[in-house]
Structures are given as structure tokens and as C-alpha cells.
Nucleic acid binder design. Structure first.
Lengths: 147, 147
DNA sequence: TATTGTTATACTCTATAACTATA
DNA sequence: TATAGTTATAGAGTATAACAATA
């Protein structure tokens, strides 16, 4: 492989890709493992999608890349728990509109708070310079992840 | 959510924790979604553990925080696929020693290559400065994740 | 008696196929 | 006939409880 950069070896594309991927995956893994969420991962994803805007089960299934029956079941569990509200679509009798209940909003906030607390506890001991690096990296990564 | 951090020193701990966590989780999510792994996540974890050193099912269950019966099942599937080798422990008849087969080693490498390719394609278009930020961030994050 | 590992059984999440209701 | 959603059924992964083999 060609390392054409005058910069350190750590900026080789392949090395950086591997290091960065591992770093992100390990952080994510520990966040999930140690913040003991109140809802399952697939339920959390649905709540987060409904926080953006009300959606139909079909839309959620497409976004989350699961089958309609799976989403039907996931939604049913969230409705059962009082986190999601079902409403008939006034213009199309086949569809249902799903949205978050106040309890759903609270649950989402609570989960994020716990996750953030874990992350905050990890970076609390870092230097100002290190935090600045991470702040800049966050911006870049969020942009890259959104592309 | 809460972006805005043009004044580095005033970047709050909570804001950084949230941005950084979201960034890592979104990157991880996309890596998993789009590199279409050959084995399931829990199987990959076990292969990676066995790459470090041969282990018993009990050790794997403790490390991966699943029950012994679950690990028993996971291991059986990997043995069935020819990725893991079972061997009797010569000093303790109750135990079995699990290790990777050559095919298991190849599979692990292949999965990592695919994941890295996705990540590399994402950072290919970044500037030298941005890559340097990510390289420094990787070091910090890997250290933090390992604590 | 304690430990390792498996089998028995049940619950959850996933999928495909078939069904109902509406457009 | 096509679409939205659910129900029927089956296949994995996980768990707890009970069992077998060994220490």
C-alpha cells in the first residue's frame, strides 16, 4: 500500500479506518452494556424515530429495515407499555398514525441521560486539549455518519 | 442534538458527552448495517475472543455476559459451521477447550476487512487536518473504552 | 458437595405466507 | 387489483431449572 502522506503513519487511511471503527464500536458496546436501558435496542430506535415525527408502521419498518410483522409486534409492545399512541388516519382508513406519549418522551430522555452519564464519566478525567480533539472529532463523525 | 461549540474552552462536559456518544453509536450502527456480516454479532464476538486465546465455554459465557446454555448453543453453531474446534481438556474431564479453525481465522479477517472498507470509504474524502483529528481521537477513545 | 457443560422448556425478536380491511 | 396492517407459524437467541459427568 502507498503511504504518500508526510504526516505520521497513524494517518494512513487503512490504519485510521481500523482504529476509528474499533474505537467507535467499543465505545458503543460499553455504552449499551453498562447503562442498562429500560427498553430493548429495537424499541429504543422506534421511540427515537417517533420523536422526530409521527409515522406509520410501514414507514418505521422501512426505516428500521425490519419486516412489517416485526414492526407490528414491536409497536404493539410499546403501545402496551404506554409509550406509543395509536391513532386512525382520518384520510386513509388503512393506515394508523403512531406517536410518542408523554411517558414515551420521558422514557427516551431518561435513557439518553443514563447513556450520557456513562460517557461523561469517561471523559471527565481528560485534559482540555483532549476534550477539544474529541469535540472536533464528534462534529466530523456526525457529519460522516449522516452522509 | 446540542451542537454549537465554537468556543472550545466553554464546551460543556454534558454536551461533549452527548455529541461524542451519538457520533460513536451512529458510526457503529452504520458499520453493522452496511457491511452485511457473514456471522451474527454474538458469533463474531466469540470468534474474536477465541482469536486472542483458546477458552472454555464458561470463560466465554462470563466474558460475553450470557448464560452458559446460551453460549453452549452459540458455540455449537460455530462448531457446526467449521469455524471453531472443540477439544477435551486433558487435565480436567469436565472442560472443553475451544479454539479457532483456519476457516474461523479467515472468516474473522474477512469480516474486519469489510467493516474497515466501509469506514475507509467514509473518511477518504476528508482533509488531512480532519484525519489527524480523527487519528488523535481514536487513540483517546480506545484508551477511554479500555478503562 | 462443587463445578462444567448440556438438555428441557419457555419467552422474545425475527421472518415469510396468508388473511382482513380499505383505496 | 394494490396497499396497510395483522395474524399464523416457524426459526434463532436468550433465560432459568434440572440433569449428567467429573473434581
Amino acid at each position: 500500500m502507498t503511504t504518500r502522506a508526510k504526516t505520521p503513519a497513524s494517518t494512513s487511511l487503512a490504519t485510521l479506518a481500523n482504529d476509528l471503527r474499533l474505537a467507535c464500536m467499543r465505545i458503543s458496546r460499553r455504552v449499551r452494556f453498562e447503562s442498562t436501558d429500560i427498553v430493548a435496542p429495537h424499541q429504543f430506535s422506534v421511540l427515537a424515530r417517533l420523536e422526530e415525527t409521527p409515522r406509520t408502521p410501514r414507514e418505521l419498518a422501512d426505516i428500521e429495515r425490519v419486516s412489517p410483522p416485526s414492526m407490528s409486534r414491536t409497536v404493539a409492545a410499546l403501545v402496551e407499555r404506554g409509550l406509543v399512541l395509536r391513532a386512525d388516519d382520518p384520510t386513509d382508513g388503512r393506515q394508523v398514525i403512531l406517536s410518542l406519549t408523554p411517558e414515551g418522551v420521558r422514557t427516551l430522555k431518561d435513557i439518553r441521560r443514563r447513556r450520557d452519564e456513562w460517557m461523561a464519566s469517561r471523559i471527565k478525567g481528560l485534559s482540555i486539549e483532549e476534550r477539544e480533539v474529541l469535540a472536533r472529532a464528534s462534529e466530523i463523525l456526525l457529519r460522516v455518519a449522516g452522509e
